[in-house]
Design a protein around this nucleic acid. Sequence first.
DNA 1: TTAAATCCGAGCGACGCAGTTGGTTTTTCC
DNA 2: GGAAAAACCAACTGCGTCGCTCGGATTTAA
Lengths: 158, 158
Amino acid sequence: MKLSTKGRYAVMAMVDLARHAQAKPVSLSDIATRQEISLSYLEQLFARLRRAGLVKSVRGPGGGYRLARGSADTRVSEIILAVDEPISATRCTEMGATGCRADRSKCLTHDLWEELGNQIHLFLSSVTLLDVLERKLAPRFIEAPAAANTESSMAAAS
Amino acid sequence: MKLSTKGRYAVMAMVDLARHAQAKPVSLSDIATRQEISLSYLEQLFARLRRAGLVKSVRGPGGGYRLARGSADTRVSEIILAVDEPISATRCTEMGATGCRADRSKCLTHDLWEELGNQIHLFLSSVTLLDVLERKLAPRFIEAPAAANTESSMAAAS
DNA sequence: TTAAATCCGAGCGACGCAGTTGGTTTTTCC
DNA sequence: GGAAAAACCAACTGCGTCGCTCGGATTTAA
């Protein structure tokens, strides 16, 4: 899960689209002026969003874009995954884990990045466009009472 | 909280340092060969880590680096914050929030990114170098029973 | 037929990343 | 004292991505 401003732009645009969704589709030039994003850049983002099945397009004058599903069924994680490059997997991260697990000393941090990716995905896929619109950013994750992690507790872990 | 491979390299090196910590300091060339990272690149990373007070250096032959604090007192979040550029705050994100809150329609996603940053920081600051070494990646975050977030629940939120 | 819109591809300037080069300083050991 | 091992330091480079522009083409409502 890559986190760049590119994904942010896409989410901003999609939230704008969800907000102004009515009978008529929403044109990119409207979104561009409202969100202050370059129109051509938006076109590129929406090309990816369309290919990912998140939006549907209506061509011709009066046309524009519509959410393919409802705003309550479109998750932020999907948007970011759609527009971001799948990251180059520079060393061992994210790939099949095999070929990295072999030499454990070299890749002690593998589990860490994997778990971090899980956390991010978990959070972003728990938020829908509707949630953002209605500002329901659920504090859905609760910190367990384990305050000091200097030692002790939770020793065995598979 | 930026997430690049740069931060990953730094954490890999720091974990390696913590793992091989003994009476003598650990030289960067040792870490470089073990982790397959360019020596000069490591030097640049450790220059930042030293400035951030995470490691201490010993010059001269037989010298190298030591953790400034213990491995149980060095958090992954600190390492990443030390080496990564503070990101250019391209539009509204991360800066003082003022000047963005003004026009709410433009920055509906502000809260989202802020909360995401919180989640990431919370996770990474809950993991110490010792945790990584001992593979205690505490599942410290528990998903609340809120399964379907299509609607309902948790309406009022300030 | 005009014009509004989506579509498409090529290219561009800037910036950070990962690494290289070529040093200098400090310090240990012979 | 000299050699060598290490940390230090600065500049530069190749590369990829980002955000964006330009110049179109296709579709379609009015």
